[in-house]
């Protein structure tokens, strides 16, 4: 795409160069530019400051800026690489790159581990898994007895916690996820392969001076 106008990034000059982001990720320069369209839309939905705030992320995900969800919170926190409470364009592109269909499975496995390691201890602990099961049951309006939830968690630990130390370490997670690839389905977004078709406006508009 040789027709990228710097004008497109004017007013958002703090955003990283698409060429740099393309070099670091699976995305091409024109795909990064298309992602900028998406980023601009989300980051201007409420605060209009060119950064994605939690409320804007929730609005884009759930059509509701107030909807709380443990897993959306985790995704937001992991996207927020600088840990400053907002997602900038570079963070958006680098994080979405994990979800690209062509990103190596090992990267997806590692991202999922960090997602589920709620307290950042380096392990997925039993209490964390219990908390996440309660969250998904609550989200799905499913009622299960405490005993049933314990059984689900116990069963999972029997399969995943190979050294039976009560926590799942990164190697155990890697083995478990490799054996159960369906668990990583949510780590791939087919949309990312056709991003320039989904958001062509940048490509169409680029180079147009007004």
């Amino acid at each position: 795409m040789g027709c990228v106008s710097s004008k497109q990034f004017k007013g958002a000059a703090e955003h990283e160069d698409p060429a740099v982001l393309a070099k670091e990720t699976t995305f091409s320069v024109s795909e990064v530019e298309a992602l900028y369209e998406l980023f601009r839309k989300i980051s201007h939905s409420i605060f209009k400051d060119g950064l994605i705030h939690k409320e804007e992320f929730q609005l884009a995900l759930f059509r509701n800026s107030n909807k709380k969800n443990l897993f959306a919170d985790r995704i937001f926190d992991l996207f927020d690489l600088k840990r400053n409470g907002v997602i900038d364009f570079g963070e958006f592109v680098r994080s979405l790159n994990i979800f690209h269909p062509e990103t190596p499975l090992a990267d997806k496995i590692s991202f999922a581990f960090r997602l589920y390691d709620l307290r950042g201890t380096g392990y997925i602990e039993r209490e964390e898994l219990y908390e996440m099961v309660l969250a998904i049951l609550n989200e799905s309006d499913l009622l299960l007895s405490d005993e049933a939830v314990e059984q689900i968690v116990d069963q999972t630990f029997r399969q995943a916690d190979l050294n039976s130390d009560g926590k799942i370490d990164p190697d155990e997670w890697k083995a478990f996820a490799s054996k159960n690839p369906a668990l990583l389905k949510n780590m791939t977004l087919p949309y990312l392969k056709d991003i320039t078709m989904a958001f062509p406006s940048f490509v169409l508009n680029s180079g147009v001076d007004d």
Binding site: R63, N69, L70, V149, I152, T156, Q159, N180, N186, L189
Partner: peptide, 25 residues
């Protein structure tokens, strides 16, 4: 049957992971 459920399989169905929604216009 709870005993045959995999906790991670359950969790992975959360709407919170549905990043495809970000792409909807």
């Amino acid at each position: 049957k709870p005993e045959s459920m995999n906790a991670f399989a359950l969790i992975s169905r959360s709407q919170g992971f549905n990043l495809g929604n970000l792409f909807e216009k």
